[in-house]
Design a protein around this nucleic acid. Structure first.
Lengths: 184, 184
DNA sequence: CCACGATACGGAGGGTGTCTCCGTTTAGCA
DNA sequence: TGCTAAACGGAGACACCCTCCGTATCGTGG
């Protein structure tokens, strides 16, 4: 790839990340991204074939830290319930960091053709590790599926994001999910 | 209202209900509704000022039966868990009957300005009645908020609708929510 | 039965969005 | 420095929601 192309690609992704984070997916138009980045829409579309692909690239770096967050939550103090809740809260925090991302990503769970498929796998893996860790302690009620957890907590995150709920409201819902999943 | 206007209004709502049910909100354009109903878009917009208002009218009859469903679930046999699950399943069944409705309605929960505000109140009331009934039996764990339940189960419904999950997958998630809400 | 005013109708077109196409410009190598 | 493949830019195609206003129709009072 030519040097100017690399520069443009990075600048576009940076600008897009900033705009999406501030305003949310729907409120940012491709024209706006192009204009802000100082390129034509043609250039934009050569680098990112659709708006969703651009979004995917924009939130890339952010997603990559999710595994570290899972480890951190699991390594924390407290009993299984505390650690599970810590993970749930971190997960919701992640998903709601970019407005509109929670629903888009949770919607794409299980759809291999989605532009977000790679991100979904990352999230699924993180949840799987949490399930494995707690399961080996015998803390979970029967069989708990990582995908099921992704969807449940992703659903909560989507609602929290959309209705702009505070951390207490989010926590009260996560407590329900946690208690529903934990043994005893 | 003039007789021809009444006829048109009803025909439009009928056609819209059919189209929305088949294809989902986003996949139906106002032009398509107008053309299928055999009227101009102007006529469409005089009867229903926005697409959301049309959607609201299209799913009206459907929503009105929700209270009966709550009663039926509560009057069923079995313990509190069985009845709560029956209600959850009925609720998800309702919300997923029209493609795209679950997320739209759950998104509008708590937003008085939404065109779906009336429907949200209906759903909230139904959940409140379920909460009251089970609470008076002492079946619920601490304080359970009807709004919280609407959001949790609505989130599950939205995911089920979007990912076109089967009843077993839906049930496995609802079991988690139910166990998280029930005492013991 | 008719004339007329209020009501309803239809569809062109405005505004905004995503995405494509192609003539023009530029990078980078020989 | 000259040349070619790569990248650029933005006009415009297409789809969407919605508005506006000239035209047609209903239904009533004479």
């Amino acid at each position: 790839m030519r040097a100017d192309a690399v520069r443009n690609r990075e600048r576009i992704a940076d600008i897009a990340r900033q705009l999406f984070r501030e305003k949310g997916y729907d409120a940012v138009s491709m024209d706006e991204v192009a204009k802000t980045a100082g390129v034509g829409v043609g250039t934009l579309y050569r680098h990112f074939p659709t708006k969703e692909a651009l979004y995917d690239a924009a939130i890339q770096a952010w997603v990559e830290t999710v595994n570290a967050a899972a480890d951190k939550a699991l390594a924390g103090e407290g009993d299984a319930r505390d650690r599970l809740l810590a993970w749930f809260e971190a997960y919701v925090d992640f998903l709601t960091r970019h407005k509109g991302a929670a629903w888009r990503i949770t919607s794409a769970m299980g759809d291999d053709d989605s532009p977000f498929a790679a991100k979904c796998r990352t999230y699924l893996n993180a949840n799987q590790r949490v399930v494995d860790a707690l399961s080996s302690e015998g803390a979970l009620r029967g069989h708990v599926d990582a995908m099921q957890l992704c969807r449940l907590v992703g659903g909560v995150a989507a609602v929290v994001d959309n209705s702009e709920l505070g951390p207490e409201a989010a926590r009260s819902m996560l407590v329900v999910v946690a208690d529903g999943v934990l043994a005893g």
